[in-house]
């Protein structure tokens, strides 16, 4: 069980090895990596030069731990990892990593998606984007709320 909030990059291979090394009960590892991207559907044409992620130290860790605990309650996970970065990122930079480890694939897939959907609406992070015309705070998306809501009933 692990939750990390950090500015440094993460290494998917290293983290996968860390979660599975020496185990013979693991049948599935699902991972999601969220990456800063250039296109900006809200703005129309203007590409994103960079984004800065701000968070609420203390509350962030508490929320991520609560989200992880909820995933473990719902699915038979052998292990689980959430790494969320903060700071300034350019398109192509990885921002968030979610990994789930289980005996069978369905639990790993479902729990990984659940963790991301809940994280998007419950973890206190805020994105500020830089474009050629200046900086703007990213508005929350209704589609993210809808994605989180579909998990509101226990699986």
């Amino acid at each position: 069980m692990a939750v990390r909030v950090q500015s440094e990059a993460f290494d998917l291979g290293v983290e996968t090895a860390r979660l599975t090394k020496g185990r013979h009960d693991v049948g599935a590892v699902a991972s999601f990596v969220g990456i800063a991207r250039e296109d900006n559907p809200d703005e129309g044409a203007e590409p994103v030069i960079a984004m800065t992620l701000e968070h609420y130290p203390g509350m962030t860790e508490r929320q991520l731990e609560a989200i992880e605990a909820e995933a473990r309650k719902r699915w038979p996970l052998l292990d689980c990892l959430i790494v969320h970065r903060y700071g300034r990122f350019e398109p192509g930079d990885p921002i968030v990593l979610v990994m789930t480890v289980s005996s069978h694939r369905q639990a790993a897939f479902d729990a990984c998606q659940f963790l991301m959907d809940w994280l998007k609406t419950k973890a206190p992070f805020w994105k500020q984007e830089e474009t050629a015309s200046g900086q703007r705070w990213v508005a929350a998306r209704k589609s993210d709320d809808a994605a989180a809501k579909k998990w509101s009933k226990p699986a």
Partner: peptide, 10 residues
């Protein structure tokens, strides 16, 4: 007590 806009992480 903290005040902030709806979150936009991930």
């Amino acid at each position: 007590v903290a005040f902030f806009p709806p979150v936009t992480g991930g």
